[in-house]
């Protein structure tokens, strides 16, 4: 207690989500067959989606193979920790405090800087700081802007986007359901009728949160892929 390793509610939710994720994949891939059963084909569908429409579509097959494990891990970790926000009794997203989005953003940052430097250190710096076809005088303005947008704004927005989507979604749900509770039990009189409306909104936002959870996982994985792709482009 009181140490950084203290187990609080969000840590507990994260452990549960990761355990559920591992269990699902273990169950799905326990007995691999050429003709997949129901569990295996679901897992194959999910992994195939990440592989084809996120990674291979943007990186191509040769580079895609190297970064596929990383992107797949990011996608499934983010989706598992986001979806806990709407699961009853857990009710908070594992990614709704800054720690996890920050760690993932740093991993993505290291990945695309590594990809660029491994390919060609000079080319990476030139591509990301000196856009081609810009006159030499304008570079004085453009180069600092490119530096800020590539090396500072990218990881910060990557972390903030995930975090604030989850925090904002959680706040909306809290607002709707606590308003329902208030109108139903505390307000008295005809105010109870309002609770129908607020509950309907809470339900609608719960459905919306399912979409946001999947969408943010998709966006996080896609952006990591795009950043790696931009680091790998040929010089021209």
């Amino acid at each position: 207690m009181g140490t950084p390793f203290e187990i609080n509610r969000i840590m507990l939710v994260r452990f549960i989500a990761v355990a559920a994720l591992l269990l699902l994949f273990w169950l799905g891939t326990r007995r691999m067959r050429t003709i997949p059963g129901r569990g295996q084909s679901l897992v194959e569908l999910a992994i195939g989606f990440v592989r084809d429409s996120i990674v291979y579509n943007n990186l191509g097959e040769k580079d895609g193979k190297r970064f596929l494990p990383l992107i797949t891990t990011i996608f499934f970790l983010v989706i598992a920790l986001n979806i806990t926000g709407i699961i009853p009794f857990l009710n908070i997203a594992g990614s709704s405090v800054i720690g996890l989005p920050l760690v993932l953003a740093v991993i993505a940052y290291v990945a695309f800087v590594y990809a660029g430097i491994k390919k060609s250190p000079l080319g990476f710096v030139k591509n990301s700081l000196v856009p081609s076809g810009v006159p030499i005088g304008v570079l004085l303005v453009v180069t600092p802007m490119e530096f800020i947008s590539t090396f500072i704004v990218r990881p910060v927005t990557l972390a903030l986007r995930l975090l604030m989507n989850m925090v904002g979604g959680h706040m909306l749900l809290v607002l709707c359901f606590s308003a329902t509770h208030f109108f139903l039990f505390s307000a008295g009189g005809w105010f109870g009728l309002f609770s129908i409306g607020t509950f309907a909104f809470g339900f609608a936002f719960t459905l919306f949160e399912i979409m946001v959870a999947a969408l943010q996982a998709y966006v996080f994985a896609l952006l990591t892929t795009i950043y790696i792709q931009l680091a790998l482009v040929e010089e021209h």
Partner: peptide, 24 residues
């Protein structure tokens, strides 16, 4: 449609980051 939807979400992700900086 498939390709455009992916691009749309990418564009939305870049644009709405500004609003999230606002919350932060």
């Amino acid at each position: 449609q498939g390709r455009l939807t992916g691009l749309m979400f990418l564009g939305i992700a870049f644009t709405e980051a500004l609003a999230f900086i606002g919350i932060a």
